[in-house]
Design a protein around this nucleic acid. Structure first.
Lengths: 118, 118
DNA sequence: CTTTCATATGAATACATGTTCATTTATACA
DNA sequence: TGTATAAATGAACATGTATTCATATGAAAG
């Protein structure tokens, strides 16, 4: 990262210091972008949207999305680690659902916004 | 994509058909995930968050984030194309700001959620 | 115990993407 | 007109990541 601020002449020092002081910590920034990153993939959005309708097992999700069990399972693992989905085991099956209201809200907002901008 | 649904025995046909019929179109899915994808990068979140404070020119943003003018400019271009930021030209300078209330809302929600989960 | 089936997972691959570097465009001003 | 500065852009490179393939785990049924 080559940053030689001294070579830039147009900087409004006061503004920069003011905004800098209001910035979030790196940790907060990473948490925020990491959460959005999970929502930034079509397969994961399809999984999450399907789960807003109903609790589903891995093979049902695979059938709904017409994708391999493995691909779905990998994505579910990622979303489990990011606390976006939870699951319960019933024999051989694993039933997945959305982790909490936040996730529902994010998906709803995404759908709503997409419909508005066409 | 190898999908041989006929080999999977555990599928609940009724559930699958029901959820399938409720699914969004590919276009809607891509629009949604594409929007979230923009928010899924720490640099872009930092830019957007800075812009929630104040309209800023490219070099001020570079100074605030301690990054190169080029890196910032590339990201701004992407966010312009996704209609997340807008800008006005004033001489040599280009002043950027958030495109609309939706963007502010998304950023706010991201921050809020991140603070809640620590 | 063995087989079958649902799910999980590790490694490999193919593709996407963020930053840098070099350069161009456009405006201000001397 | 020529120089300096802010911003934009294209290409290249390095890194990240989604899916596939092969295989492992674990539960149910025979």
């Amino acid at each position: 990262m080559k940053v030689d601020v001294s070579e830039i002449k147009c900087i409004d020092e006061k503004t920069v210091e003011e905004v800098k002081s209001l910035m979030l910590s790196d940790e907060e920034i990473f948490t925020i972008s990491d959460n959005f990153k999970v929502l930034g993939d079509p397969t994961r959005i399809r999984i999450l949207y399907a789960l807003t309708q109903k609790e589903l097992c891995v093979c049902d999700l695979a059938a709904v999305l017409q994708m391999s069990q493995s691909a779905i399972s990998h994505q579910l693992r990622l979303m489990r680690s990011k606390k976006m989905v939870k699951y319960r085991k019933d024999g051989k099956m694993a039933y997945y659902s959305l982790a909490d209201e936040h996730v529902i809200k994010f998906v709803e907002m995404g759908v709503e916004h997409a419909k508005e901008i066409q």
